[in-house]
């Protein structure tokens, strides 16, 4: 990452408090030991290391963290959270940043990952359980990536692993209400 100058006016003093309140984790306790980042399996895909994201939250670099690729390629493996000597729940901070990025319309990169989450949740909202075929169909429509992994899909379909018809539950209306009340 290139060093760049940051003007005082770019810093958002509310970000730290906002994320700490959402995650009940003391982000300000970070002493930059980098333990979270040395064990992160996705570090090679990230624009900022997990420790840098934590530092940026502390500093109030709102736009930079919310627009980062890091928050989307994080696989939620929880290695960072498990190893942090200061008990900072970094994986949960990543969750909070993704949600904040979506709600504020700042999410910028990795559009396909967002389409995937959307397709997945839409299937649950309809049936109460995941219907793989609907989820895959919706994802492909959104992304236009029809041929990608088509060979794997075919093999799974042949083996009965992808069902034509959805499975549902009596509680699907209750599930729908949960979606509505939390949207």
């Amino acid at each position: 990452m290139q060093a760049k100058e940051i003007a005082q006016s770019q810093l958002d003093s509310k970000l730290l408090e906002e994320i700490e309140n959402k995650t009940h984790t003391k982000v300000s306790a970070c002493f930059q030991c980098l333990k979270c980042s040395s064990g992160c399996p996705l570090a090679y895909e990230m624009d900022y290391l997990p420790a840098q994201i934590i530092r940026m939250v502390n500093m109030g670099l709102r736009d930079e963290v919310l627009r980062s690729r890091t928050i989307w390629v994080c696989a939620s493996c929880e290695t960072c959270t498990t190893r942090c000597p200061n008990d900072i729940d970094i994986a949960h901070v990543m969750d909070a940043l993704r949600e904040t990025a979506l709600r504020s319309g700042k999410a910028e990169t990795e559009e396909n990952l967002r389409h995937f989450h959307e397709a997945f949740l839409s299937a649950i909202k309809t049936w109460g359980r995941v219907h793989e075929l609907q989820m895959i169909g919706m994802y492909k429509l959104k992304t236009g990536r029809f041929m990608e992994d088509a060979d794997i899909g075919k093999e799974m379909f042949k083996r009965g692993k992808i069902k034509l018809l959805p499975e549902t539950t009596r509680g699907r209306r209750a599930v729908k209400r949960i979606f509505k009340k939390t949207s």
Partner: peptide, 9 residues
């Protein structure tokens, strides 16, 4: 699953 906690706490 992953998609819910990634996008809506």
């Amino acid at each position: 699953a992953t998609s819910a906690h990634c996008t809506n706490d």
